[in-house]
Write a protein that binds this DNA or RNA. Sequence first.
RNA 1: GGGGAGGUACUCAAGCGGUCAACGAGGGCAGACUGUAAAUCUGUUGGCUAUAGCCUACGGAGGUUCGAAUCCUUCCCUCCCCA
Length: 419
Amino acid sequence: MYIARSGLVENVFETLKERGFIQQCTNADEIARLLSGEKITYYVGFDPTADSFHAGSLVPIMAMVHLQRAGHTPIAIIGGGTTMIGDPSGKTTMRQMISRETIESNGMEILSQLRRYLNFSDTSGIFLNNAEWLLPLSYIEFLRDIGRHFRVNEMIRAEAYRQRLEREEGLSFIEFNYQLLQAYDFLHLFRQHNCVLQLGGDDQWGNILAGVDLVRRVEGKTVHAVTFPLFTTASGEKMGKTAGGAVWLDANRTSPYEFYQHWVNINDRDVQRFLACFTLLPMDEVVRLGKLKSESVREAKEVLAYEVTKLAHGETEAEKARNASRAAFGDEGADMSAIPTTTIGVDRLAGGILIVDLFCEVGLGSSKSAVRRLIQQGGAYLNGEQVKETDTIVTEEHLDEGTLLLRHGKKQFHRISIG
RNA sequence: GGGGAGGUACUCAAGCGGUCAACGAGGGCAGACUGUAAAUCUGUUGGCUAUAGCCUACGGAGGUUCGAAUCCUUCCCUCCCCA
């Protein structure tokens, strides 16, 4: 069912290319040769700006998975040092500074999520925090040893900085230094772990190349860079900002059911691309599913959602999410238990609960006004029945086999069970 | 250091003494159409109670006024030009 391990696959680089992981890279032929030869060490940096990854982080993670399966050694570094600076690439405004403690605790959470995808035991994978070597740096020494290799003319010509320089917010010196630090990371990892390849999002191209240049200047050696395409969807751009919009890998933030729903609901045009990138299904299966048209596209989306959820949350959770989704969207009698559920006391129900309050309480509405609006627009449902009046009171008479099913619009379900 | 321009809701962006909870666009949400898709059309988009109303909001703090996002003072922040 899964792609064959290294050996059967002619070349991981081909695999990555075929699955749409490669946006830009330094000399492709050399990288292909490098990856098909002896085992190498590669690295990807992650920002510990939150205590969980979100869906977008799966691109680099899956790329790392493919490389590790091919026998190469991953280094995942969290930018404990660099995050204290804040990368301006692709950002329109300066990022908020984050405290060291937060960065560290975020880092731990992120590592535990990474472990679900990658093996960090023994020597098969390495997890590092660049705070370890960045924080002790001496400013003067750093300027003399590293800073002198950077030409400001070159830097400000880079797209990443130019945008900010043209915008009103400008660019602070601390942000301008970010690139030097990331480049230094690469140099450090090359020296300590013989790391010869850095991968990252395409917005990191400039930063990664800075590292490649630095290694060449200082060590006289050639190392490589690969960037991933930035998976942009209609809402992708502002994903980081809106609280409700992000899809997290942390089950407490985004339940497996909601996670599954996110993947089932993607755009038709994204199906094949996503299957290739976010699942480990063999490519011929990916292509087959990608060819499905009209209604049967849903089948492909189900497979996608199931596979991605399985990787993130395990097989059991994935199955529960799939069952719950089928149950919620048609298939009568299937298991609804994975649908987000809130338990309330019998006595509360006996007293009657205003439907508006109930929706708010379970998170199906941000405020009472919002729920009233929803009801007025005909988007609120109780046990499949449209709620017509904003002052409807829910009592035990509404119980259907001991539970209540609330619905917001077409897709958001929430179950109430009595405890 | 000198001079100039600005800081408005999720974002961009109008408003420049009352009719402003604040035009418009994007985004979000809902409805119709569908395939839990896209596109399109419609409605909606501060909170609380409600046919009315009340409260909180236009960088922060004061002030003028019957009344301010709009005027004054001051503080903070940003950008541009000159040095």
